[in-house]
Design a protein around this nucleic acid. Structure first.
Lengths: 191, 191
DNA sequence: ACCGAAAGTGACACAACTGTCACTTTAACT
DNA sequence: AGTTAAAGTGACAGTTGTGTCACTTTCGGT
């Protein structure tokens, strides 16, 4: 019934993600995206009215994928298993928190679509915390996590440490194990 | 011999820092800066030829202040004291690593000035690591730090964890102590 | 009072990004 | 083969940022 598309929505999201990470929220433009996809700018406007709409739609997709995976944490019954699971998941989605930060830069739009997307995003964000909060609660009730540490810091710690740049190219396995070791038992030698 | 300036270089750097952190490297413009300083754009061009020159000059100033403070670490003789010192210093300069990241986004300029500034910045960056490397070496030789952890991870850990956003407004003191506790001894309860 | 030099202004030409739209292309369906 | 509708294009007008420059303002020194 119609002509074949030159780019799939998946490709478009993939490029959007790369360009956002390379140029930042304000550095991202339709021109860059069109060049990367090798189509004209006009073609993109067939699917998204503007940058805000495109980025919020992309973020919804991204958060959706992440949440679907995250929800699997609930089937694991022990804190240790959940810890490994969460750690691996965040390593796989190493840019998620950076993207969430970009999401917060989206200006309050005049467009209805964008505003409802932002509301949806906020709801998903809360849902994300709900699952992670449960994880922390389990850890504390199992007496695995130190009770005096604020819940949000436990989560912030995991999110932030996976993003430490491995500039000197230390093997991924060593790197991940070391981060886990520090988060779990610290960098200080036991006496 | 001349008219009084409407803004000092310090004020200009202060605004540059704020705007960089708010808008990112590509989102930063002379127009924004001029508005913030309540002068015309033209006035800024009296001092800096373009955005790259302004930002590299600013970064040099920023790194300089940081290095001057950092060098004081050498007078402390024990690892524990150096650890406290470094931790406090990085908390005081909580945005330094984010600014360094922006520095890496500066395109290879045609201008001679900008290129030499970038070289200077890289030299300062190396010098920074030299001092921190010494800190890690001391920790390992005093058997305070676990020897199997990569040196760069120890540093990355400190840099990255101070930047964990305290969204729920936990009191600064509790927050800092908790981060230190985790980095030092982990978030897991000892059996 | 007036001169010079540094500070600041606003207008100009240019470049990049935005959003729109009339138009062309292409594939499926009759 | 002809019709249809989605997909894609490129040109246009509007906005925002850039870099420059002739001009004005303001101060200290003479």
């Amino acid at each position: 019934m119609a002509r074949e598309r030159k780019f799939s929505t998946e490709e478009l999201y993939q490029c959007t993600k790369q360009l956002l990470l390379e140029h930042g929220y304000e550095g991202f433009t339709f021109s860059l995206l069109a060049d990367r996809l090798e189509v004209s700018r006009g073609a993109i406007y067939k699917y998204f009215e503007n940058k805000e709409e495109l980025i919020t739609e992309f973020m919804l997709d991204e958060m959706n994928h992440f949440l679907v995976e995250l929800k699997e944490i609930a089937v694991l019954d022990e804190f240790d298993k959940q810890f490994d699971f969460l750690f691996k998941l965040i390593f796989k989605n190493i840019n998620i928190q950076q993207l969430i930060e970009f999401g917060k830069q989206i200006p309050l739009s005049t467009s209805e679509k964008v505003r409802t997307n932002i509301l949806k995003l906020e709801a998903m964000h809360l849902e994300m915390y709900k699952y992670m909060q449960n994880f922390v609660s389990l850890g504390k009730s199992e007496k695995k996590l130190k009770s005096q540490i604020p819940d949000m810091l436990v989560l912030g710690m995991i999110f932030q440490t996976v993003a430490i740049p491995n500039h000197f190219g230390i093997p991924h396995d060593t790197w991940v194990k070391s981060i886990k070791e520090i988060i779990s038992h610290g960098m200080f030698q036991n006496k």
